[in-house]
């Protein structure tokens, strides 16, 4: 099968799933009797609606190619950073570092992926950004909670720009025998992460009993994690034919993606709570903000990238 053929086969399956989910949502909405279940179903349907949009945008990207994909993820980073910093108290003295994060760091990071400069892509923000930003903040002269402010800006930048940029960075990987198919690897990563999220939500709602970390994220349960996570690994293994991995290799990769994604959701929930918010924003109806959807991607993408790079290159 050609890469295009594989892409549309997978997308066909995703679309079929979405159609089924939409029909199910419609039936559930008609059968909801009390306010509690109506609320759950409304939220579910908003999520399904948002999924249609996300899949449409992804399809557009794959049709338009590499540049469009990079632009899309750069925009995702932009909105995620905007959400993160909106919840972060900053002061007048942080203005210049913040301007640099948005108008320099984001374009630069994605441009480096675009021109295939792996060496600088991998260290630009964690080395140069890490050192330069606090120095520039210090030049502003405001020492009031300096460490807290710089730490929060660094965290936001690493998470929303550096980590998220690892998803389209899989286009940089030169896996022998897999040339010209890297967009499929990105699709694989996104599908496994997102399906894992969805299945953990579904399993949690259906069978969830024991809460995993009630003070951090009340919706995460042991049953949800095990049921959803293992099913997502099964789906990922079943997609081995779009990846450069064997069946068991693909299962292992999916396991890594699922675990990293879960940890991302957990850690970012804790960050969110410590900033005093329930959702990161309101951009995506039913899902909250951009970061509520990308929290697991931001942890899974860098790990996936480096494991593939180590194992296959």
């Amino acid at each position: 099968m050609s890469p295009q053929h594989k892409f549309w086969t997978v997308m066909g399956a995703v679309l079929a799933l979405l159609v089924i989910a939409s029909l199910l949502g419609w039936v559930l909405a008609r059968r909801a009797r009390n306010d509690g279940s109506r609320e759950v179903v409304t939220n579910l349907n908003a999520r399904i609606g948002a999924w249609w949009w996300m899949v449409a945008i992804l399809c557009g990207c794959f049709l338009l190619g590499r540049v469009a994909t990079l632009v899309l993820f750069a925009l995702a980073s932009f909105f995620a950073l905007r959400e993160f910093l909106t919840l972060t108290p900053t002061r007048r003295g942080d203005h210049l570092p913040l301007v640099l994060c948005f108008y320099l760091a984001i374009p630069l990071q994605y441009w480096l992926i675009g021109i295939d400069w792996y060496g600088l892509f991998a260290i630009c923000i964690p080395v140069y950004g890490f050192l330069l930003l606090p120095a520039i903040t210090a030049l502003g002269g405001d020492t009031e909670s300096f460490l807290e402010r710089t730490t929060k800006i660094q965290w936001g930048l690493m998470l929303t720009v550096y980590c998220i940029s690892y998803a389209p960075a899989v286009l940089l990987l030169h896996v022998p025998g897999y040339e010209g198919q890297n967009l499929l690897l990105l699709l694989y990563l996104l599908l496994v992460v997102q399906i894992s999220d969805v299945l953990q939500y579904v399993f949690g709602k259906l069978f969830g009993r024991r809460k995993l970390a009630p003070s951090v994220s009340p919706s995460k349960t042991v049953e949800g994690l095990l049921g959803g996570g293992l099913s997502a690994v099964a789906v990922g293994a079943g997609l081995w034919w779009i990846t450069p991995f064997s069946f068991w290799g693909s299962a292992g990769m999916s396991l890594i993606i699922v675990i990293a994604g879960f940890l991302g959701g957990l850690a970012l929930s804790a960050v969110k709570r410590s900033l005093g918010a329930k959702d990161w924003g309101h951009m995506i109806e039913g899902h909250g903000g951009m970061l509520d959807r990308l929290d697991s991607v931001s942890f899974a993408a860098p790990v996936f990238f480096h494991v593939v790079r180590y194992a296959l290159m």
Binding site: R82, L85, T86, V99, F102
Partner: peptide, 11 residues
């Protein structure tokens, strides 16, 4: 803030 040229994108 007063005195700045470029806006920082915040919601």
């Amino acid at each position: 803030p007063k005195g700045s040229l470029l806006p920082v994108p915040l919601t």
